[in-house]
Design a protein around this nucleic acid. Sequence first.
DNA 1: GACATCACG
DNA 2: GACGTACGTGATGTCC
Length: 928
Amino acid sequence: MAFGKGCHLHLIDGSAFIFRAYHALPPLTRKSDGLPIGAVAGFCNMLQRYVEGNNGPDAPTHVAVIFDKGSHTFRNDMYDLYKANRDAMPEDLRPQMPLTREATVAFNIACEEMEGYEADDIIATLAVQARDLGGRCTIISSDKDLMQLVGGGVEMLDAMKNKVIDVEGVEEKFGVGPNRVVDVQALAGDSVDNVPGAPGIGIKTAALLINEYGSLEQLLDRAEEIKQPKRRQTLIEHRAQIELSKRLVQLDENTPLTFSIDDLEVRDPDPERLLDFLARMEFRTLTKRIADKLGTEAPVIEDAAPVAADAPEMPEIKDATYETVRDAITLQTWVDLVYEHGHVAVDTETTGLDDMVVDLVGISLCVNAGHACYIPLAHKQGSDDLFGSDAAAEGQMPLQEALDLLKPMLEDESILKIGQNMKYDAKIFNRYGIDLAQFDDTMLISYAQNAGLHGHGMDALSERYLGHTPIPIKSLLGTGKSQITFDRVPIDDATPYAAEDADITLRLWQLLKPQLHQKGVTTVYETLERPLVPVLAQMERHGIKVDRDTLSRMSNAFAQKMAGLEAEIHELAGQDFNVGSPKQLGEILFDKLELPGGKKGKTGAYSTGVDILEDLATEHELPGKVLDWRQLSKLKSTYTDALQTHINADTGRVHTSYSIVGANTGRLSSSDPNLQNIPVRSEEGRRIREAFVAEQGNVLVSLDYSQIELRILAHVAGIDALKQAFKDGHDIHAMTASEMFGVPLDEMTPDVRRQAKAINFGVIYGISGFGLARNLRIPRSEAQGFIDRYFERFPGIRAYMDETVQFAKDNGYVQTLFGRKIHTPEINAKGPGAGFAKRAAINAPIQGTAADVIRRAMIQMPAAIKDLPCKMLLQVHDELIFEVPEDAVDDTVNTVRGIMENASDPAVKFDVPLVVDAGQGANWAEAH
DNA sequence: GACATCACG
DNA sequence: GACGTACGTGATGTCC
């Protein structure tokens, strides 16, 4: 039947169905092979409900499901940022996309999509055709971008709310009729699609203006007449941007369709085809339901052997036997197996822990629970003779031959590599010329789900989730002086250990990966954890140049001063003792010299911390000397001495190791050496930073977020006064002091400001009167008074703290603005533990959000600086350090600052600006 | 290996 | 009413 008067066309927005189905359902997987299938199941259910609900008198004569195809459309050619803020499609959804098309076809409903056009354009073109042919059209979608089409026989239907959206509905939403919807959208913009619009103008104002001037074009032509100066200026200044926005939101009603509206005629389902599809998807309930409706027999769905996560029927690890791969033919069969499965757990064995130095000894693979192998590559002959032998052990294939066979698979984007702490393995592979692509990391998957609940090392995960204690590495290597390296382990012993690690990793992945979706942290994992791995790997590889001579000279100077101080201390004490022993020092101070201040701590030992000694310094000369000695001792042992041992012999640089899961809040941690706690607060300590230098012709550039945690606090707690102060670029501590103590800003004294600063920080840490009193060395009652006054002035902060604690009590976790979850298992405990948990819960969203912001900046950084000659070297929580050729400093600062200041976009829109300060110099002391 | 101390944000 | 208390890390030296 040709479409015409009396006909009724239904157009279903396919993408909307898919996303609704995806988010509404748990992450179901097909039992036989673990294929994610939840969105397809939901999609089929929705289609079936649609079919069942549309066989009455008002049934459509024509129907189609319209999909988006590809991500690049003609709108991207107009504006390359169009929809640029969209998060990548979740991984477990991507493979379901083609299946939703198959499902539509199986239901015998027309299924249309066109390269280069959005579904909305196809829908617009068909709706207009239907209208022009004298028929009706119902668009099954609630997408506001389609509302411009309503009217003249075209209406929309929100399938979830079963609510019709007609001309009045559109007017309600936009304040104008459908024909002016695009004008309003052009002005208001759209953060979801990244349509810029006019800054500061929302839908309300836009509708007001359009109604007053009749159309967008008239409004822009007569913009000079607008009374409000700011609005007038905005419209004049951003005219081009507004006009572009209109072109972006205007749907193309003349899409060159490759089919005719007549092709969309409603067809009866073909039972065999539909049921066959549903059975193939293994939808038991739905298959049966639809078979009943169609009056046919439901096909039998075999109970296939499950491999998926919720299938505990894995073979026991302790029963597994693992294969040793000793030749190319066997290895090739394993590579073939990997391609059959599409994924593989990989683990590397090396001669040590320092991935910048160690050699590869072997590789293990696992394609399925219990099905793993070990490929020994550089084992040496047994350690039975006392000195060991450098001869290679028998029965190993040549290392290069193995790598040549594995490299294409490891670099193949269609094969998912699964590892535990993949940064390590990726760095090892990189040193052997292999660029690992497409991976999952069980450590990061665990961290994204369970930060704060437990550790994420393999042993901990294996015991907790698999009930299996892995073979301890010490049982192979021994301990202490007689410890050997892995290449000295006999291959027959190495195989069960190494292959088991890969086996465990694969099992953990099968178990934990599907839970990402369930726990709502897929985006956290995919945008904040996993993409950081290659970024950190490269920073660690770069390392930072450290000048050994500078450190060495400092060590000598410190040693001399310490010797002098030590003599003085012994003199004052009247006896020799170990100044570095708190126990001996306590006895000297409190027993021999009988200074005031008693025992403390569970161990019953005297406490001799810096606070105590500072107080004692007014009573006696000795404690001050000890403090000086301690400072020097710290600087020497931890920094000037230890750092030298970390200088890599090949690179002359120091390569720290960052841990993504090191801190529960989302912060990174740095170790071996820790480069996040290089001294800066004391003058003497800061000089250590002079040893961190740039290569010849380069400088170090440091960029750091200014007051980021306080800005986040102002945002999350919604404190207008603080937000305004940040917008105006005021001194936030002085502002706080002024608000609290009523001192005008121009009469502010440094001391009052200092107190306000302590309070500001205290708030972030979950303030207590006791803590503030100790920090400021004021009476507790006075500190409590400060806090009371602070909360009186900023009641929103008290409310935020209370709400956060309550949220933690209700949910067992708190969240950052980017969705990171930090668990607080102790929050409902009794006793002092609850106090800790409470303060941690208050602090975590703030510290964690700041951590998320800089993570986002770092993840974007490689692409942003790819044309610049600079290198990102270090991260210190709110600071990034780059090494830059002198003539590229300005470009680098501009680019990096832009990325950092806008790092929250578009996921979070802060009410306060993020500000980044920059410094540069030949060394880190100058740059900071 | 636990503890105390102290370096950083 | 008493109890302990600022948040988050890592490295070092003592001492058992």
